[in-house]
Write a protein that binds this DNA or RNA. Structure first.
Length: 272
DNA sequence: ACTGGATCCTGATCGC
DNA sequence: TGCGATCAGGATCCAG
Protein backbone atom coordinates (compact mmCIF):
# COMPACT_ATOMS: atom_id res chain seq x y z
CA UNK A 1 0.00 0.00 0.00
CA UNK A 2 0.64 3.46 -0.23
CA UNK A 3 2.29 4.85 2.83
CA UNK A 4 2.63 8.58 3.33
CA UNK A 5 5.19 9.20 0.56
CA UNK A 6 2.99 7.38 -1.94
CA UNK A 7 -0.02 9.43 -0.89
CA UNK A 8 1.96 12.66 -1.11
CA UNK A 9 3.28 11.62 -4.52
CA UNK A 10 -0.27 10.94 -5.66
CA UNK A 11 -1.51 14.35 -4.49
CA UNK A 12 1.29 16.16 -6.25
CA UNK A 13 0.72 14.12 -9.37
CA UNK A 14 -3.00 14.67 -9.76
CA UNK A 15 -3.21 18.27 -8.50
CA UNK A 16 -2.09 20.09 -11.67
CA UNK A 17 -4.52 18.04 -13.76
CA UNK A 18 -7.61 18.60 -11.68
CA UNK A 19 -7.29 21.93 -9.86
CA UNK A 20 -9.62 24.56 -11.37
CA UNK A 21 -11.33 21.85 -13.41
CA UNK A 22 -15.06 21.28 -13.26
CA UNK A 23 -16.49 17.86 -12.42
CA UNK A 24 -19.22 16.98 -14.93
CA UNK A 25 -20.01 13.38 -14.03
CA UNK A 26 -19.30 10.64 -11.49
CA UNK A 27 -19.08 6.96 -12.29
CA UNK A 28 -19.38 4.52 -9.40
CA UNK A 29 -18.97 0.91 -10.50
CA UNK A 30 -18.39 -0.69 -7.10
CA UNK A 31 -19.46 1.13 -3.99
CA UNK A 32 -18.42 -1.60 -1.53
CA UNK A 33 -15.10 -0.35 -0.27
CA UNK A 34 -14.18 -0.35 3.43
CA UNK A 35 -17.37 1.63 3.78
CA UNK A 36 -20.03 2.11 1.12
CA UNK A 37 -19.34 5.05 -1.16
CA UNK A 38 -22.04 7.67 -0.37
CA UNK A 39 -23.10 7.96 -4.00
CA UNK A 40 -26.02 10.33 -3.65
CA UNK A 41 -24.19 12.73 -1.39
CA UNK A 42 -21.24 12.79 -3.77
CA UNK A 43 -23.41 13.45 -6.80
CA UNK A 44 -25.25 16.22 -4.98
CA UNK A 45 -22.07 17.90 -3.83
CA UNK A 46 -19.58 17.33 -6.64
CA UNK A 47 -21.39 17.69 -9.94
CA UNK A 48 -20.72 21.05 -11.60
CA UNK A 49 -18.23 21.92 -8.88
CA UNK A 50 -14.74 23.17 -9.52
CA UNK A 51 -11.82 21.52 -7.74
CA UNK A 52 -10.22 24.11 -5.47
CA UNK A 53 -7.34 22.22 -3.93
CA UNK A 54 -5.72 18.82 -3.42
CA UNK A 55 -4.14 18.23 -0.03
CA UNK A 56 -3.78 15.40 2.46
CA UNK A 57 -4.03 14.64 6.15
CA UNK A 58 -2.17 11.48 7.13
CA UNK A 59 -2.94 9.07 4.28
CA UNK A 60 -6.31 10.67 3.51
CA UNK A 61 -6.42 12.67 0.29
CA UNK A 62 -8.62 15.78 0.37
CA UNK A 63 -10.11 17.06 -2.86
CA UNK A 64 -11.76 20.36 -2.01
CA UNK A 65 -14.77 21.96 -3.71
CA UNK A 66 -16.76 24.95 -2.46
CA UNK A 67 -19.11 23.01 -0.18
CA UNK A 68 -16.67 20.51 1.31
CA UNK A 69 -14.22 17.73 0.67
CA UNK A 70 -14.09 14.49 -1.25
CA UNK A 71 -11.88 12.29 0.95
CA UNK A 72 -10.05 9.32 -0.49
CA UNK A 73 -7.95 6.70 1.28
CA UNK A 74 -5.97 4.27 -0.88
CA UNK A 75 -6.02 1.38 1.58
CA UNK A 76 -3.47 -1.31 0.78
CA UNK A 77 -3.79 -1.46 -2.97
CA UNK A 78 -5.42 1.74 -4.18
CA UNK A 79 -4.19 4.17 -6.82
CA UNK A 80 -5.57 7.46 -8.04
CA UNK A 81 -4.65 8.56 -11.53
CA UNK A 82 -5.71 11.01 -14.20
CA UNK A 83 -6.34 9.72 -17.73
CA UNK A 84 -7.79 11.11 -20.94
CA UNK A 85 -11.49 10.26 -20.60
CA UNK A 86 -11.50 8.14 -23.75
CA UNK A 87 -9.06 5.58 -22.29
CA UNK A 88 -11.13 2.51 -21.38
CA UNK A 89 -11.42 1.74 -17.69
CA UNK A 90 -9.65 -1.27 -16.16
CA UNK A 91 -10.64 -3.94 -13.76
CA UNK A 92 -11.12 -2.49 -10.26
CA UNK A 93 -11.64 1.07 -11.47
CA UNK A 94 -14.38 1.52 -8.88
CA UNK A 95 -14.87 5.25 -8.93
CA UNK A 96 -14.21 8.12 -11.30
CA UNK A 97 -14.74 11.84 -11.70
CA UNK A 98 -15.14 12.96 -15.30
CA UNK A 99 -13.81 16.47 -15.82
CA UNK A 100 -14.86 19.15 -18.28
CA UNK A 101 -11.37 19.26 -19.77
CA UNK A 102 -11.70 15.77 -21.21
CA UNK A 103 -9.81 14.04 -18.43
CA UNK A 104 -10.92 11.59 -15.80
CA UNK A 105 -9.73 10.99 -12.25
CA UNK A 106 -9.82 7.24 -11.59
CA UNK A 107 -9.71 5.34 -8.33
CA UNK A 108 -8.54 1.73 -8.71
CA UNK A 109 -8.36 -0.63 -5.73
CA UNK A 110 -8.24 -4.42 -6.14
CA UNK A 111 -8.51 -5.23 -2.44
CA UNK A 112 -11.08 -2.55 -1.65
CA UNK A 113 -9.52 -1.69 1.69
CA UNK A 114 -9.63 1.99 0.82
CA UNK A 115 -12.53 4.38 1.29
CA UNK A 116 -14.21 7.33 -0.38
CA UNK A 117 -16.08 9.77 1.85
CA UNK A 118 -17.64 13.20 1.88
CA UNK A 119 -17.26 15.79 4.62
CA UNK A 120 -18.09 19.45 4.86
CA UNK A 121 -15.48 19.63 7.58
CA UNK A 122 -13.14 16.63 7.68
CA UNK A 123 -11.91 17.47 11.16
CA UNK A 124 -15.37 16.52 12.44
CA UNK A 125 -14.96 12.95 11.20
CA UNK A 126 -14.00 10.49 13.89
CA UNK A 127 -11.39 8.79 11.72
CA UNK A 128 -9.69 12.14 11.19
CA UNK A 129 -10.09 13.63 14.66
CA UNK A 130 -8.32 10.73 16.33
CA UNK A 131 -5.23 11.01 14.15
CA UNK A 132 -1.86 11.86 15.69
CA UNK A 133 0.48 14.52 14.38
CA UNK A 134 2.11 14.71 10.99
CA UNK A 135 5.72 13.54 10.87
CA UNK A 136 6.78 16.87 9.33
CA UNK A 137 5.00 18.90 12.01
CA UNK A 138 7.30 21.05 14.16
CA UNK A 139 5.89 19.33 17.23
CA UNK A 140 7.08 15.92 16.10
CA UNK A 141 10.26 15.91 18.12
CA UNK A 142 12.11 13.60 20.47
CA UNK A 143 10.33 14.95 23.54
CA UNK A 144 6.93 14.25 22.01
CA UNK A 145 7.75 10.67 21.01
CA UNK A 146 9.45 10.02 24.33
CA UNK A 147 6.36 11.14 26.25
CA UNK A 148 4.09 9.01 24.07
CA UNK A 149 6.34 5.98 24.49
CA UNK A 150 7.04 6.12 28.17
CA UNK A 151 3.90 4.35 29.38
CA UNK A 152 3.66 1.83 26.57
CA UNK A 153 4.76 -1.76 26.66
CA UNK A 154 4.39 -2.43 22.96
CA UNK A 155 7.46 -2.58 20.74
CA UNK A 156 8.82 0.65 19.36
CA UNK A 157 8.00 -0.54 15.86
CA UNK A 158 4.33 -0.98 16.68
CA UNK A 159 4.32 2.39 18.41
CA UNK A 160 5.58 4.38 15.43
CA UNK A 161 3.09 2.60 13.17
CA UNK A 162 0.25 3.67 15.45
CA UNK A 163 -1.49 6.56 13.79
CA UNK A 164 -2.73 8.09 17.03
CA UNK A 165 0.95 8.77 17.78
CA UNK A 166 2.30 9.83 14.40
CA UNK A 167 0.64 9.37 11.03
CA UNK A 168 2.02 8.05 7.79
CA UNK A 169 4.58 5.53 9.02
CA UNK A 170 3.60 2.20 7.51
CA UNK A 171 5.30 -1.15 7.53
CA UNK A 172 8.09 -0.42 5.07
CA UNK A 173 9.16 2.92 6.47
CA UNK A 174 8.92 1.71 10.05
CA UNK A 175 11.64 -0.87 9.39
CA UNK A 176 13.72 1.61 7.39
CA UNK A 177 13.48 4.38 10.00
CA UNK A 178 14.47 2.06 12.85
CA UNK A 179 17.46 0.86 10.86
CA UNK A 180 18.58 4.42 10.17
CA UNK A 181 18.19 5.28 13.86
CA UNK A 182 20.02 2.10 14.95
CA UNK A 183 17.14 0.96 17.15
CA UNK A 184 15.95 -2.64 17.45
CA UNK A 185 12.30 -2.95 16.34
CA UNK A 186 11.39 -5.09 19.35
CA UNK A 187 12.66 -2.56 21.90
CA UNK A 188 9.79 -1.98 24.34
CA UNK A 189 8.54 1.56 23.83
CA UNK A 190 8.92 2.34 27.53
CA UNK A 191 12.66 1.62 27.30
CA UNK A 192 13.25 4.20 24.58
CA UNK A 193 15.58 6.93 25.83
CA UNK A 194 15.12 10.60 25.00
CA UNK A 195 18.27 10.49 22.90
CA UNK A 196 16.93 7.54 20.94
CA UNK A 197 13.56 9.20 20.55
CA UNK A 198 15.21 12.24 19.02
CA UNK A 199 17.23 10.09 16.68
CA UNK A 200 14.14 8.14 15.66
CA UNK A 201 12.04 11.23 14.90
CA UNK A 202 14.81 12.58 12.74
CA UNK A 203 15.19 9.22 11.00
CA UNK A 204 11.47 9.01 10.23
CA UNK A 205 11.56 12.48 8.69
CA UNK A 206 14.67 11.77 6.65
CA UNK A 207 13.31 8.48 5.32
CA UNK A 208 9.88 9.85 4.45
CA UNK A 209 11.30 12.93 2.79
CA UNK A 210 13.72 10.91 0.71
CA UNK A 211 10.95 8.54 -0.32
CA UNK A 212 8.80 11.46 -1.44
CA UNK A 213 11.57 12.82 -3.63
CA UNK A 214 11.86 9.38 -5.23
CA UNK A 215 8.15 9.22 -5.95
CA UNK A 216 7.40 6.64 -3.27
CA UNK A 217 8.12 2.94 -3.09
CA UNK A 218 6.78 0.48 -5.61
CA UNK A 219 6.88 -3.10 -4.42
CA UNK A 220 4.06 -4.50 -6.44
CA UNK A 221 1.20 -2.34 -7.38
CA UNK A 222 1.88 1.26 -6.48
CA UNK A 223 2.15 3.65 -9.37
CA UNK A 224 2.48 7.38 -9.38
CA UNK A 225 -0.32 9.34 -10.92
CA UNK A 226 1.55 9.41 -14.21
CA UNK A 227 1.70 5.62 -14.24
CA UNK A 228 5.39 5.37 -13.38
CA UNK A 229 6.47 3.28 -10.42
CA UNK A 230 8.05 4.89 -7.36
CA UNK A 231 11.79 4.54 -7.19
CA UNK A 232 12.42 4.43 -3.47
CA UNK A 233 12.48 0.62 -3.54
CA UNK A 234 16.03 0.95 -4.82
CA UNK A 235 16.96 2.78 -1.60
CA UNK A 236 15.53 0.26 0.85
CA UNK A 237 18.25 -0.82 3.27
CA UNK A 238 16.45 -3.59 5.16
CA UNK A 239 12.85 -4.02 4.01
CA UNK A 240 12.47 -7.20 1.96
CA UNK A 241 16.20 -7.97 2.22
CA UNK A 242 16.13 -10.99 4.51
CA UNK A 243 19.44 -12.89 4.53
CA UNK A 244 21.13 -10.22 2.43
CA UNK A 245 24.20 -8.45 3.87
CA UNK A 246 23.65 -5.25 5.84
CA UNK A 247 24.84 -2.23 3.86
CA UNK A 248 26.85 -1.08 6.88
CA UNK A 249 28.28 -4.14 8.58
CA UNK A 250 27.61 -7.02 6.15
CA UNK A 251 25.83 -9.09 8.75
CA UNK A 252 22.72 -10.83 7.45
CA UNK A 253 19.46 -8.91 7.64
CA UNK A 254 16.91 -10.69 9.82
CA UNK A 255 13.17 -10.97 9.30
CA UNK A 256 10.74 -11.35 12.19
CA UNK A 257 7.03 -10.93 12.62
CA UNK A 258 5.83 -8.18 14.91
CA UNK A 259 2.09 -7.87 15.36
CA UNK A 260 1.41 -9.93 12.22
CA UNK A 261 3.59 -7.70 10.05
CA UNK A 262 6.96 -8.62 8.61
CA UNK A 263 9.78 -6.61 10.11
CA UNK A 264 13.37 -6.42 8.90
CA UNK A 265 16.44 -5.31 10.80
CA UNK A 266 20.20 -5.71 11.16
CA UNK A 267 21.03 -7.69 14.32
CA UNK A 268 24.35 -5.85 14.70
CA UNK A 269 23.47 -2.25 13.80
CA UNK A 270 20.23 -2.38 15.80
CA UNK A 271 21.32 -4.32 18.83
CA UNK A 272 19.98 -2.44 21.86
C1' DA B 1 -6.35 2.49 29.19
C1' DC B 2 -3.63 -1.00 26.65
C1' DT B 3 -2.88 -5.06 24.06
C1' DG B 4 -3.25 -8.72 20.86
C1' DG B 5 -5.93 -10.72 17.46
C1' DA B 6 -9.45 -11.05 13.90
C1' DT B 7 -11.22 -8.88 9.99
C1' DC B 8 -12.39 -6.69 5.44
C1' DC B 9 -10.68 -8.31 -0.09
C1' DT B 10 -8.09 -9.69 -4.42
C1' DG B 11 -4.01 -11.19 -6.61
C1' DA B 12 0.74 -12.85 -6.78
C1' DT B 13 3.73 -16.40 -5.54
C1' DC B 14 5.32 -20.73 -3.75
C1' DG B 15 5.37 -25.69 -2.82
C1' DC B 16 3.52 -29.99 -3.96
C1' DT C 1 -0.73 -26.85 -15.41
C1' DG C 2 -3.33 -26.91 -11.44
C1' DC C 3 -4.44 -26.48 -6.76
C1' DG C 4 -4.40 -24.90 -2.04
C1' DA C 5 -1.88 -22.27 1.35
C1' DT C 6 0.32 -18.11 2.43
C1' DC C 7 1.43 -13.47 2.13
C1' DA C 8 0.90 -8.33 0.98
C1' DG C 9 2.13 -1.28 1.52
C1' DG C 10 -3.87 -0.34 6.39
C1' DA C 11 -6.69 0.53 10.06
C1' DT C 12 -10.81 -0.52 12.71
C1' DC C 13 -13.14 -3.03 16.09
C1' DC C 14 -13.58 -6.18 19.89
C1' DA C 15 -12.70 -9.07 23.90
C1' DG C 16 -9.94 -9.58 27.78
Amino acid sequence: MPELPEVETTCRGIAPHIIDQTITQLIIREKRLRWLIPSEILVKNLISQKVLSVTRRAKYIYIQVTTGYLIIHLGMSGTLQVFPANIPHRKHDHFECILKNGKVLRYNDPRRFGCILWAEDPTQLKIISTLGIEPFDKQFKGEYLYQKAIHRKISIKELIMHNQIVVGVGNIYASESLFLAGIHPLLPANQLTLVEAKKLCKAIQVILEKAITKGGTTLKDFYQSDGKPGYFSQQLKVYGREQEPCVNCKKKIQAIRIGQRMTYFCPKCQNN
